[in-house]
Nucleic acid binder design. Structure first.
Length: 215
DNA sequence: GGCCAGGTGTAAA
DNA sequence: TTTACACATGGC
């Protein structure tokens, strides 16, 4: 493997996920609940996050305004299945308040927020920041996670920082856009390509398959 | 019963 | 500037 494009190609051809899942790998992309999911999924399986999201939905508080004002003790109980619930409840509620203070509403947040602003928030590290940018705001950001680290290491690539991995991953796509278009049989916007790329990496990682199965 | 999951912040060294 | 540890549940 010489560029990240070849990894994307191999992962797509491996058919790890159904087309429908590929298209909307992060459920309800572009909506506020992606922010909630991004915090809840930290070091946590997505199935647990879904339980928490269901609890929030059933109590009609899965929205920016409610989460900004809710008692964190109550919020903690509702997100308990996702683990680290006290910490996550506090950080999530604070984040929602800050979003309202700074941007007013979610729609303005989507078009105005910067990576730097996100990183300045407690509980939002590089991965969550990029997840929010890509899946909640539809920005051109590729999420790097432990699965990405692991798979690149297995191919013999070593990087010193998150940003270096991200750069390498995104560059390989940008330099091969013609091949990307062919792979997907049409033009997709970059945010969508990055979103699907990350999704495939995660699914491959979860499948515990060997990289030998890819090439 | 130990290990891990779609991380992050903080305190020591 | 690195490293260790806390945060916590639930499935295998």
């Amino acid at each position: 493997m010489n560029s990240s494009f070849e990894l994307l190609e191999a992962l797509k051809n491996a058919n790890l996920l159904q087309d429908s899942t590929d298209i909307n790998w992060w459920s309800n992309s572009g909506s506020f609940e992606v922010i909630v999911g991004a915090i809840l999924t930290q070091q946590t399986k997505w199935e647990k996050v879904e339980k928490s999201l269901k609890n929030l939905k059933e109590n009609n508080i899965l929205n920016l305004e409610k989460l900004a004002t809710i008692d964190t003790k109550i919020l903690a109980i509702l997100i308990k299945p996702s683990g680290f619930y006290n910490t996550k409840a506090k950080r999530l509620s604070t984040l929602c308040r800050k979003i309202i203070e700074e941007f007013g509403d979610f729609e303005n947040f989507q078009i105005s927020v910067t990576r730097e602003w996100l990183l300045a928030q407690k509980g939002v590290g590089q991965e969550s920041a990029d997840a929010i940018l890509c899946y909640a705001c539809k920005r051109e950001a590729l999420v790097v996670d432990n699965y990405t680290n692991k798979i690149l290491k297995e191919f013999g690539y070593e990087f010193d920082s998150y940003e270096e991995i991200q750069q390498w991953m995104m560059q390989g796509i940008l330099e091969n856009m013609d091949r990307v278009d062919k792979l997907y049989e049409g033009k997709l916007n970059l945010s969508t390509i990055y979103s699907r790329f990350h999704g495939k990496i995660v699914e491959f990682g979860k499948s515990k398959k060997d990289i030998k199965d890819l090439f």
